[in-house]
Amino acid sequence: MVWNTLADNINYAVAMVLFCIGFYTLIIRSNLIKKIIGLMVMQVSVFFFLVSVGYLDAGRAPIVVPGEPPSAMVNPLPQAMILTAIVIAVSTTALFLSLALRFYRHYGTLDMDKAKEDQR
């Protein structure tokens, strides 16, 4: 029963596994760029999850074509949400990268742990 549901929802499961991978990368790596990559994996996994939520069996893109029934279109709302969320993710990542750049210029390393002793 559980396995059946899991098989049906394999997209969700993959998204969650991705989320965990991203999370693990985020906490285990001390290199800033790798941390940012972990963050992006987490973000993408959530987008993946949301897109899957909007999926409809045998659905088509949500663009109105005269003559076709509207109920056969996939859910446009998660797509709109993800569009917003992607822009947010891009902005966050860009800001984070610029901070990492500045960090590198100041401390000469991207390693958070190595810079810990440097109290400047």
């Binding site: 559980v2 549901t5 899991l6 049906d8 929802n9 997209n11 969700y12 499961a13 969650m16 596994v17 989320f19 965990c20 999370f23 899957s52 939520v53 999926y55 409809l56 069996d57 659905g59």
Partner: peptide, 17 residues
């Protein structure tokens, strides 16, 4: 975290229904 999230996945409504 993984256990929690996979657990939730098994409870979610079937995809594409």
């Amino acid at each position: 975290l993984a256990v929690l999230l996979i657990y939730v996945v098994t409870l979610l409504p079937a995809m594409g229904d």
